[in-house]
Design a binder for these strands. Structure first.
Length: 490
RNA sequence: GCACCGAUGGCGAAGUGGCUAACGCGCUGGUCUGCAAAACCAGUAUUCAUGGGUUCAAAUCCCAUUCGGUGCUCCA
């Protein structure tokens, strides 16, 4: 079954495939490392992660490249304010970005392209454009792209620039450009700023040329898919197309994948509204990394997602149910045999799951298919009719589910501990009850649980209940089953 | 202002012309349990923002209105 995705360029849902017959070559615009990533950033990276994981699930080999923008105006400004060289400043946030990505289960792309390590390629591309008189140097020493030379400009964002008067909205300061919409390829260095001495003159690359140069370096002039947040469609991606296709006279990326923005508690996320959250903020409030991943992934990428704390609680509970179920099927003792009706239900769940993901990455429907199977198998297990064959089929399906959603393995306590350690180093506040819960080690908990089990055996229920309450107060929930006592952190 | 997208139960959300409107969370009752928890069972929208229209048939198509969001400028 092919994966079909909406293509912004064509406006249609189309199959994704490897045009070179070997790898699906995809490029995703990565972070600009001037601050910690927020959950809006990660929504995009999480859906690109789901995309690459679905491709892998379907048997494709993927070559995924992501850039890191480690030089731009904001970085230069912030590094200057912090009194740091830009490479020191950006390293901190680059490292933080990958730590956060790991915490959220985002797989590493096959290649990470750092802007500052690819200046040569950008200069070469600009020179190639200059040879065709598409790039030109303006009075201040900066280079611009001559949009008039690319008649298809606007084909991605479906903008019609006919009738837009040149100069109609031009800033007074920008008289050195030939036309108002012409965008910067190379920005001349101003005194005291970071720059590179190149045949173009001293300066630094514009943001758009970075992605064009690096995508083509790693993936070739023409490749399969280009991804990013919806805001990048214009002007960033439009400009990438203009630059690349002007240079190569070939289609740049065939398929364009754009992830919509999220809202937080029904409002646009913004620092001034106080609803701006980084991953670290949420971990320190006591929310789990897995719940954040699951919530951000549960709403399909083409829909706006309203991120709420209630939603996070919902996701936490849903994951608990999935994990409990997984453990139950994996660790239970199931008699030999098979039950055709249940086998069929699992098979149909598998088909529905795969079909949903292939249908424009419908993660909500895929999730629903798994819960249908969960209920059917739990019912059978309760009735004593779950047999070995179906238990194994269920585990296989769960593994397939987790190859995309990646929430079954519980790394949450460990990740939250890491966030707490970071908060301590950086002198940031963390939720007090969270600190208390995590201060209790697994060994301490096991001891208390054992004491309670002993009290229970002696039918000293008052003492047993007191111990259970003590654990609950510290965020530990107990579950008694025939196979013994399980505990988990709330 | 111009352009585009969305509005489905208490909450999140699937479904884009045709069976009783998925699924998750929550809530209520039951089973199980020393009591809980977990799990299961039953119940929880006669109805899909509002008004009109097309059709044998609409949550799904068309028009209008209201509300929310986005782009046009740095932004995932």
């Amino acid at each position: 079954m092919p994966l079909e995705l909406f293509n912004t360029l064509s406006g249609k849902v189309e199959p994704v495939y490897a045009s070179d017959g070997a790898n699906v070559r995809m490029y995703c615009c990565g972070p600009t490392v001037y601050d910690y990533g927020h959950i809006g950033n990660f929504r995009t990276f999480l859906h690109v992660d789901a995309l690459r994981r679905v491709l892998a699930m379907l048997g494709h080999s993927v070559r995924h490249v992501m850039n890191v923008t480690d030089v731009d105006d904001k970085i230069i400004r912030n590094a200057g304010a912090a009194g740091q060289p830009i490479d020191v400043y950006t390293k901190k946030f680059t490292d933080a970005f990958f730590e956060d990505s790991d915490a959220l289960g985002v797989e590493r792309p096959e290649a990470i392209a750092m802007a500052t390590e690819n200046i040569d390629g950008m200069v070469a591309l600009i020179e190639r454009l200059a040879a065709q008189d598409i790039a030109y140097k303006a009075e201040g020493g900066s280079w611009y792209f001559r949009i008039a030379k690319f008649p298809e400009y606007g084909k991605l964002s479906k903008k019609d620039f006919e009738g837009i008067e040149d100069g109609a909205r031009v800033d007074v300061d920008e008289y050195d450009k030939d036309a108002a919409r012409d965008f910067a390829l190379w920005k001349a260095t101003r005194p005291g700023e970071t720059g590179w001495d190149t045949p173009l003159g001293a300066g630094r690359p514009g943001w758009h040329i970075e992605c064009s140069a690096m995508a083509m370096k790693y993936l070739g002039d023409s490749f399969d898919l280009h991804a990013g947040g919806e805001d990048l469609m214009f002007p960033h991606h439009e400009n990438e197309i203009a630059q690349s296709e002007s240079a190569t006279h070939q289609p740049f990326a065939r398929h364009w994948f754009h992830v919509r923005f999220l809202l937080v508690e029904g409002r646009k996320m913004s620092k001034s509204d106080g609803n701006f959250y980084t991953l670290r903020d949420l971990l320190l409030k006591g929310y789990r990394a897995s719940a954040i991943r699951f919530l951000l992934l549960s709403v399909p990428y083409r829909h706006q997602l309203n991120f709420t704390f209630d939603g996070l609680t919902e996701s936490t509970n849903a994951i608990d149910r999935l994990r409990t179920f997984h453990t139950r099927v994996r660790d239970g003792k199931w008699a030999e045999g098979t039950d055709p009706a249940l086998a069929l239900a699992i098979h149909e769940g598998d088909l529905a799951y795969t079909h949903a993901l292939c249908s424009d990455l419908n993660t909500a429907e895929a999730r629903a298919a798994i819960f249908d199977v969960l209920r059917a198998v739990n019912t059978a297990a309760d009735k004593g009719t779950l047999l070995r064959a179906e238990a194994e089929a269920t585990l296989t399906l769960l593994a397939k589910f987790d190859s995309v959603f990646a929430v079954l393995e519980d790394r949450d306590a460990e990740l939250t501990r890491a966030a707490l350690a970071w908060a301590q180093r950086e002198d940031r506040e963390a939720d007090a009850s969270l600190v208390a819960t995590l201060s209790l080690s697994d060994e301490d908990i096991d001891k208390l649980v054992a004491a309670r089990t002993l009290a229970k055996k002696q039918r000293n229920f008052a003492k047993a209940d007191a111990l259970r309450q003590e654990l609950l107060d510290k965020g530990i929930v107990l579950e008694d089953s025939k196979d013994g006592v399980r505990w988990k952190r709330k």
